[in-house]
Amino acid sequence: MPDIDELKGARADLLCFLVATVAASYALTQEWRVDHVVESGRIWLKRNLVTVQWLERIRIGQLALKIARRDLKGAGITVRQSDVQALFTGDMGLNHASTVVQKMMRLCRDATGTAT
């Protein structure tokens, strides 16, 4: 399996998936759930057949929590309970047609230094 940095945009996509998951989880439970970040990371990596070293997974997960907790609001992004379903597709991938996901992706590309 390729490393995440071998696939263009994969790091930003993983980060955005984690940010969306964390924001959705918070909207539903009012808790910042680290276990959701860990499990969502595993799901994304398995689905996309990509590898990431364990320490880098932790860094990406921590960055996702930081973005969800602090940066979304500053970027004018609010995820409410009613928004959660629109963030994801039927197979729980990111819904790239969602304007909220598009805004999240811009933040994540900026955070990873990935060009659009």
Rank of each mutant, 00 (worst) to 15 (best):
R69Y: 14
V52P: 03
R70I: 09
L63T: 06
K73P: 13
S82D: 12
R69A: 15
G61N: 00
A75C: 06
I60P: 08
A68S: 06
G76V: 14
V79T: 07
R69T: 06
D83S: 03
Q81I: 02
L63I: 08
Q62P: 06
R69Q: 14
R70K: 07
R80H: 05
L49G: 05
V79Y: 01
K73Y: 12
W54V: 08
T78D: 11
I77G: 04
D71K: 03
V79W: 09
R57N: 03
R59S: 14
L72I: 07
I77A: 04
A64E: 01
D83W: 09
Q53N: 01
G76R: 07
K73D: 15
T51G: 04
A68C: 05
G76C: 13
T51W: 03
R70F: 09
I67R: 02
K73S: 10
Q53C: 13
V79P: 11
L63H: 06
A64F: 14
D83K: 01
W54S: 04
I58R: 03
R59K: 11
R80F: 15
D83M: 10
Q81E: 09
I67A: 08
V52Q: 02
D71Y: 05
I77M: 15
G74L: 14
A64N: 05
G61P: 08
I58P: 00
Q81H: 06
I58E: 10
L63Y: 08
L65T: 10
T78S: 15
D83Y: 06
Q53P: 13
S82T: 13
S82K: 11
E56T: 01
A75H: 00
L72N: 11
A64C: 07
T78E: 15
L49M: 01
I58D: 02
D71Q: 11
Q62G: 08
K66Y: 14
R57A: 07
G74T: 09
A64D: 09
Q53I: 07
V79I: 14
K73Q: 10
A75I: 05
L55Y: 00
G61Q: 01
V50L: 10
W54K: 00
V50S: 07
R70C: 08
V79E: 11
L49P: 03
R70L: 15
Q62T: 13
I58M: 04
L63E: 01
D71N: 05
G76M: 06
I77Y: 09
Q81F: 05
L49K: 00
L63K: 00
I58T: 02
G74V: 12
V50Q: 02
V50G: 00
V50D: 06
L72P: 14
R80W: 09
V50M: 12
T51N: 04
Q81Y: 04
G61R: 00
R57I: 05
R57K: 01
A68Q: 10
I60S: 08
S82F: 06
I58V: 13
Q62H: 13
R80S: 10
S82H: 02
T78L: 15
G61E: 03
I58F: 10
R70G: 07
L72W: 10
E56G: 02
I60C: 00
K73T: 07
